[in-house]
Simulated assay, not measured.
Amino acid sequence: MSAVAWIAVGSLVAWVWLLLGQGFFWRADQRLPSRAAPERWPSVAVVVPARDEAAMLPVSLPSLLAQDYPGPVEIFLVDDCSKDGTGDVARALSVRYGGVPVTVVSPGEPEPGWTGKLWAVRHGMTLARSREPEYLLLTDADIAHEPDSLRELVSAAETGGFDLVSQMARLRVASVWERLVVPAFVYFFAQLYPFRWINRNTGRTAAAAGGCVLLRTEAAVRAGVPDSIRQAVIDDVSLARAVRRSGGRIWLGLAERVDSVRPYPGLGDLWLMVARSAYAQLRHRPSVLLGTVLGLALVYLVPPAALIAGVLGGDAAAAWAGGLAWAVMAGTYMPTLGYYRQSLWLAPLLPFTALLYLLMTVDSAVRHHRGRGAAWKGRTYARPEAAPDQ
């Protein structure tokens, strides 16, 4: 066989392994586990870090105010040095809609060694603990919850004995670029952190989705969070690892009734979303970056390239191996597209989307080495931590 054919066979072997040996990540079927209403509803404090979120709060905050949770619940919205009147908007919405009581506070600029979001979360958790809640719901200011969201989360945690229950909010998919890029973001995340592996009692894999995390207060204290992860840019994965290391049980799945309302209408918006933390995920190691680029190329770019080269060059082995690998790839992407209610005809375009993610990751490394690091809403972390293992 030709060298192209052998490379295509290598890609096909990789896809067979991903299909069967990576926790069936592609099935997109992990939802809240079986649950029943507890005999007594525990108290919950909702912590919402918010920086320049005046445009998002009118869509997201009313959904928290309208929670029909049967037990005691209170919202702590932490205004992280916003310049757009985020705190005033939150107070006005609380007066307008009523419902769950809201306390709006501002901790000021973060101390050295802290990322802005975790500094805000720390302040909110400290205030919340003064009420001695049994659970903390950490949710972002761009996340909208159905009225029964908190009730279902607590029921799942109580029934399953989980210390952390997290749902990956359904991201907005409206523009052409969102349809092309957003479902793949969830697909790649699940490939890196297979939900089935996370949800096993004896598993070592740990991750969470930062937009919606229900956390037992005693588990947070035991894990020392957020202080133990204060520099983490990928704070959700770091949080889950800290809870698991301290002996906690965690669960992660896809949300049905929790949605992100933040728009990413253009490619540039999505590019910045990925590039700001991609290199941190690789722990700022050039060798890991090189391996990632080569791996993405072999797994996602070789199949269509081998098929085209094989057809044009009369190399039947390359064409067949490339075509089969591409078919398996597209097939594994279809459940995620179905979850996002998108056309299955987008599945064969996954190699193009993977190429975009490859370029975003390289750009993330370039930004880091130019001293811009992870930038978000006016803050830049030149050498942030990713998700520390220790």
Results as ranks from 00 to 15, higher is better:
14 A>R: 12
19 L>D: 14
23 G>N: 03
31 R>N: 10
47 V>M: 13
49 P>E: 08
55 A>E: 12
57 L>S: 11
59 V>C: 13
67 Q>W: 07
68 D>F: 04
72 P>L: 10
79 D>G: 07
94 S>A: 15
95 V>W: 06
103 T>K: 14
108 G>F: 02
119 W>F: 02
120 A>S: 11
122 R>Y: 04
131 R>V: 08
140 D>I: 00
144 A>W: 05
146 E>A: 15
148 D>C: 08
167 Q>I: 08
180 L>K: 10
182 V>Q: 09
183 P>T: 03
190 A>I: 01
190 A>E: 07
191 Q>E: 12
196 R>T: 06
202 T>F: 12
210 G>D: 00
217 T>R: 01
217 T>V: 09
219 A>C: 08
232 A>T: 07
234 I>A: 04
243 V>P: 06
249 R>L: 05
255 A>D: 05
256 E>V: 08
256 E>D: 15
268 G>H: 13
271 W>R: 13
272 L>K: 14
276 R>C: 08
281 Q>N: 12
287 S>M: 07
293 V>Q: 00
312 L>R: 13
312 L>K: 11
317 A>S: 13
321 A>T: 01
323 G>V: 12
324 L>M: 14
325 A>Q: 00
331 G>V: 01
349 L>R: 00
352 F>K: 05
354 A>N: 14
359 L>I: 14
365 A>R: 02
375 A>Y: 04
382 A>G: 02
